[in-house]
Design a protein around this nucleic acid. Structure first.
Lengths: 80, 80
DNA sequence: GTGTGACTTAAAGTCCGTC
DNA sequence: AGACGGACTTTAAGTCACA
């Protein structure tokens, strides 16, 4: 599932860019650290609402997040 | 949940553009018609995997879908 | 500071139908 | 053709101990 994998990568990138640990993001989002870990590794099939919660906790606008996701998906497309 | 609502609108737009009924899309995607109905109305909190399945069944690339989603989210942002 | 397996309980997703 | 409901099955949400 490429959408899931792309989302995982983008979420991790934004988190690191924000200088946050999974633990800090967990506190700010109210979502368990181990769940965030699973999402970033692409092993959890997250819902849109949970995704939105995490994105907002990262201090990123939904628009910005989706734009970055789009850039990643374009690259994947260019590879195959 | 704005991500959910934006997704709902974009999905419906793409389906109508493709000239498909919810029932036809349900058959092509293997996802229940009542569920697709709920997603398009924004009352269902879909997972990324299911979303990907529906998008692909619409004959739309993930990249294109996410790009359109981004455009909708930008507009929402401009309004508030 | 993160990955992972195992677990419970909420909710995703299906299938039947009616309006 | 699509909204909506009820009962059902499967899986995501959410948490823990431990590596």
């Amino acid at each position: 599932m490429i959408l899931r994998q792309a989302t995982a990568l983008v979420l991790r990138d934004f988190r690191l860019e924000a200088g946050l640990s999974q633990e800090q993001l967990a506190r700010q989002s109210g979502i368990d650290r181990t769940y965030i870990s699973g999402v970033e590794r692409g092993v959890r099939n997250i819902t849109l609402d949970s995704l939105e919660t995490i994105v907002l906790a990262l201090g990123v606008s939904q628009s910005e997040f989706v734009e970055t996701l789009h850039n990643h998906l374009k690259m994947v497309k260019a590879v195959d």
